[in-house]
Structures are given as C-alpha cells and as structure tokens.
Design a protein around this nucleic acid. Structure first.
Lengths: 159, 159
DNA sequence: TCTAATCTTGACTAAAAAGTAAGGTATCCG
DNA sequence: CGGATACCTTACTTTTTAGTCAAGATTAGA
C-alpha cells in the first residue's frame, strides 16, 4: 500500500494554509518554495483542491490561496478522497460497487480484507482534522495516540 | 491510498495455494487461469513469493507451487511487505528511517499522520492470517469484525 | 488604460508500475 | 538418452502516474 505523491503534497499544501489568519493568502510561489516542488506542480494540486471546495483562491495582484473552511472542519478522509480515488483503492474495486470489472465477483477471496482495511483506514482518517495536525515536530506521539484511540472508540461503538 | 496490483494478485495466488493438502501442488497455468491473468504475470508474482520464502516450488513434470509454511502461520503484514515496499509506503518515506531524502526532515507536518496510519494498518494486517481468509463469500463480515477487534485489542494493550 | 502579479487550463514530457516475451534450466518418464 | 513438462530469469513493451511548459484570463494599482 502506498500514499501517492498527489495525496502527500496536496495535504502538505493544505497544511501550509491552515494557520493563516482572516484575509491572509499564500501565493503559489510561496507554497511551492516551502515544499520544494515546482510552482507548476503546486498549481495543479491547488487547482484540484480548489475545484473540490477545500481551498478558495483570488486571482491577480495580491491574490493567492486560503482554506475555504476552518481547519477544524476539514477531516483527513475528505482530503484524501479529493486527491485520489478513495481513502483506500484497489485494482479490483470491489468495495466501491463497481463489481463488473472484477472476474472474482461473487467469490472473491480478498474482498473481505480490502473492505476491512478500507474501513479501518477511513475511520482513522475521519477522526483527524487539519487543525489537529498544525503543531510541529513533537506532536508525532500525540497524533499517533489519537488515531489509535479513535480506532478503539469506533470499534466499541460498533460492538 | 492504493493497494497495488502486485499486492492484490500476489495475495490471490497465495490464497489459491492455502487450501492444498500435503504433497499437492498447483501449476502456473492453473493459478493464472483461475485469476484471469497471464502465466507470465503469475510467474513473476510467484517467483517473488518464492524468493521471499512464502511459497516453495518443484520444477519439471509433476511440478508446481505450494505454501512453504502452514496457512495459519502466514500473516498478512508479511505478505504485503514481500510484495511491496512496506505495509504502507509514502513518497517521503519518513517512517522507514530514510530521512535524508526528505526536505522536511525535522519539521514535517504530515509525518505524524503517516506514522500513525502505518501503525494502524500494520496492526490490522498482523492480526490476519491466510488461514482466516480461506472461507468463501459470506465471511466478509467475519473478517471485518476480526480486523476491528484486533485494532481494539492492540490499542488497549498499548494503553 | 496599462502593466505586473497571479491564478487557470490543456497539452506535453518524464518516470514508475504493470504486464509480456523468450530463452534457460531442472525433473520426470519411457 | 531424449523428449515433454514446468519453473527460472532477464529484457522489453505498454500503461499509468507524476511532473513540466506555455498560453490564457483576472485583478490591483499606478
């Protein structure tokens, strides 16, 4: 399993916009430089995020990008879905409902694994917001604990 | 996030070998036909699994492949690691220790997310064996419940 | 209005993953 | 021994993903 480059850098761009105050904007150049990617590449990512309603933009001099909503209202699962097919996709997208494309339809040995993992990942991501990712460096342990707790709570609720 | 084709079909191949009895073998042709992939493709996957010690093979007439160990002793996390880089890889492999390749070293906003997700996925996979995936169709719910339970138990143990 | 700064968009190029082809090697069996 | 079967290995082709380029459109301010 792999986190795609688009998911990773899209998330990084959002993370740069998250701490901005009211009326503040970052330009493509600023965002790209901080992440070490080209402005062309950053532009493509931000356009995807813009189209999906996660960021808003202003053109022209003094223009730039900002979050379309509060960082506390943007959850990780939504971000990942916007930047890629789903929080967890497979070659044989059994769980999306597109069953026709799969020759194993009706007797697929790995379907339960993929459905299960998809659920675990989705629930973990749904419990994390952009705002929670803001701190620096030392919050690795905090976030990890948070993801694990979330996983536990949701499992309890289902039981 | 995506499950690669190699991971998916490699797992499917193992799942075919899992129910074989002592001294039984499946040939490349048999495996490939059941999965709807070419023998060349199946051969590549089985070679990877063989090299990693998950399956063993016999050449010549009456030859074929079988599991190198009992299906109950092969866990999902090991399978996925063999078929791909890790249970969860990212463009910026912060969690693998290869920190130099990342310009965000020391101040990486998304590192906690990736480390956390990596842990959630690894624990879920470590709790599933090939033997548990053997049944057909109707065990989707069983496996899903199993993954969730595992997630819960492990979280408790850590707390 | 003119100009510089900035986002927008589609087409192009490069890199990685997936899949294919072909010749090599080992084993069985007559 | 010799042919048939089946795995082993490397190199190649195709497809997908990632990244780049360049021309267009919009806004602020002089």
């Amino acid at each position: 399993m792999k986190v795609s480059a688009q998911e990773e850098y899209g998330l990084r761009c959002l993370l740069q916009l998250a701490p901005l105050g009211e009326g503040e904007y970052l330009t493509l150049t600023q965002i790209a430089e901080r992440e070490g990617i080209s402005t062309a590449n950053a532009g493509k990512l931000l356009w995807i995020l813009n189209k999906a309603g996660l960021v808003s933009s202003i053109r022209g001099t003094k223009g730039g990008y900002r979050l379309a909503r509060s960082a506390a209202e943007i959850h990780l699962d939504e971000i990942i879905k916007v930047l890629d097919e789903d929080v967890l996709a497979s070659h044989c997208n059994s769980y999306t409902g597109i069953l026709d494309a799969c020759i194993h339809t009706g007797n697929c040995g790995i379907r339960p694994v993929i459905v299960g993992l998809h659920d675990v990942v989705r629930r973990a991501m749904a419990g994390i917001t952009l705002a929670q990712l803001l701190g620096t460096e030392s919050n690795v342990e905090t976030t990890l604990h948070q993801i694990n707790s979330l996983s536990r709570e949701t499992a309890h609720r289902r039981a």
